[in-house]
Nucleic acid binder design. Sequence first.
DNA 1: CTTTCGCGAATTTTT
DNA 2: TTCGCGAAAG
Length: 756
Amino acid sequence: MVENQIKNTMDQMEESMQELTRDLTEAQIEAVTTTSGPLLVLAGPGSGKTTVVTRRIAWLLAQGIPSWQLLALTFTNKAAGEMRDRVQSLLSETGQDQRGLTIMTFHGFCARLLRQHAEDANVSPNFTIYDTTDRRAALKQAVRNAGLDSSNWTPASVGEAISNCKNQLMTAETHDSGSGDFYTRSIGRVYKEYQTILTRNDAVDFDDLLLKVALMLRDNEAVRTSLQERFQYLMIDEYQDTNQAQFVIASALVGPQRNICVVGDPDQSIYGWRGADITNILDFEDQFQSAKVVSLGRNFRSTGHIVDASANLIQRNTSHRERTLHTELGEGEKVAVAGSVDEHEEAQEIVHGFRQRFIEGTPWREMAVLYRINSMSRVLEQKFRDAQIPYVVARGTAFYERAEIKDALSYLRMVVNPRDDVAMRRVINTPPRGIGKTSLDRLEKHAILNRLGLGEALDQVEEVPSLTARARTSMKRFIEMVARWRFDADGGSLVLDLPDFVSKVIKESGLEKAFRTSSSEEDIARLENLDELVTAAAEWTPPSEDESEEAEPLTILQQIAAWLESIALVSDADMVDPENGTVTLMSLHAAKGLEFDVVAIAGLEQGLLPHSRALEDDVEREEERRLFYVGMTRARRILRLSYAHRRTVRGITERTMASQFLDELPAESMDRQDTTDPWGSTGVKGVSVADWQVGATVRHPTFGLGMIRRVVPRPRGTTATIEFVEYGHRTLLVAQANLEIVSPDEHPWEGIDIPI
DNA sequence: CTTTCGCGAATTTTT
DNA sequence: TTCGCGAAAG
């Protein structure tokens, strides 16, 4: 009986194992079924990477590996979610479920480890994760504390330097600030100040999540071994985007059995600026001796011209390793290239094209516009709105960056972490409650004098003699308010759920009232945003803790903490909902890992793509090329590239030059619609552009009558080479030459035969 | 203490 | 164009 059952289970397993590899290519099967030892899967765009990773997980489970021994790390929540979903659907066929699997983002995983091993990692277990804005505030403070001039030491530049240090596992203590030049010494000082602030506030930044875990794993053998024993099988997605710290973490997690599988594509490495080290993937075979390498060579996503064009482009990179990718989806449409007068026309034409595709049967959700910088979304949004085409801008983090949302969240942060000074500073007088700069300065002086955090100083307002009675009362009221919230949240008198609690805080803090009193357009929007925050809290579900089956229900306080953490770790790409029936607008970076039937990439101009900050440097320009490559390869069937001859950035209109990358695409795969008419369809100075063509007759104030021979777009402006009747060839700037189109009636060429 | 105004600087990409 | 900061007014 029992034996029979076992046999049945075995049969079932065998069956599902066959099922798991049935429709795969040979390379894919190898990647799925190689379960022990180091494995590098080189996965070009559209090569079925997610399929391989999810099948591999299911395969391991089918082999009888307990789910809790598996760890899969990704970069975005979206990628993790998708992986979970696909694994789940594979497993549900055999009645299993994915409980116990750890599929997380790198940062999320690190945050969890840090809380679990807070003591070993030397952090408070209820630390706050600082986002870009908080970090900025802390950096500014640090520069001030270091006694440096804030105009020379901007948060951005200092932050980047510190980030680099952290990525290379250099702590504030190990930073070599004794020797080195003035710059290095100064950075060292700011770094120390910055870290002091973070520590005092029980806060960590994004880099710390990785750094602290890396150091803990490196230095603490007990923790390291226990994790190695727990996670026998490690998988890392988008390995080309890992940095030094992540490499150390990955290496430390790999136990003696060396079951590490990394998946990635060096040609899609686009986060070098964030410290990603492409050599991690390039040198994988050296780091993990006897590693097996599987290269997935078939592109299941895009049609021929798209594959060829992108392959041709990426070959220009010296970092590119020779590799062939082929598709069996046929040639498909050629890659279209269009030039427009300005960004408005460019956007308009994209909208037109999309509408056409929609009429032909492509749903809106299968279309996307990609661009290099987020500010380019503005014009596009406007045109899509005007055309009444549904669209979403994939900018998930934007909502949480709004002032009113940050305010509300800062109150919640104070509830969770009373030492969070950055949050406190933000809201102690928002909305105004009579605690101005002077009072805050006095409080701060007291704090410094007594070596206290600002929050601690606040707790003893009575001991600060310099404060006015008025300010003191306000402060006391403020402390009491927060303390009451904390009491309630921590299992206090009343029982509320998370959204109710959030709503309560928004009300009692006075935030709501501050916006309710006025009825300006803006304040109404803010109010709506706050409502949306409550909705978001209602929709949020706590991550299922895999460890204990019958986990106790979380207290409100714990829920808030977990919710805040999930907010801190959202990314733009997370907001792309494949279910929604809308066009997607997003940055090229956010598009990685996604695919659409129809893709338009806008702004193919020198200085934009490649970006001006990357023009000088070869290495950076190659990253721009990879970025363009990533964008191109998002398209399944239709790819349209465009640029504008003139673009307004930050209020100033400038003439542009088409991107050098366009010239790096193979002519046979391209459909260039931009060669004839550099002025697009609207023209300049009221003259119809159709007239500005080779062969048109013009009159110049000094040179008299002539015929246009050539029209060339140049960085300084479009030039026309004109054959004048009396003066011969002249090349002039069209915009300045004051040319006049002469109607065919007065045609001077009659009887005169000028060879063209 | 709060609000408003004007000036200057700046945005590449994001966990 | 938009944001953020400091100064000046209320």
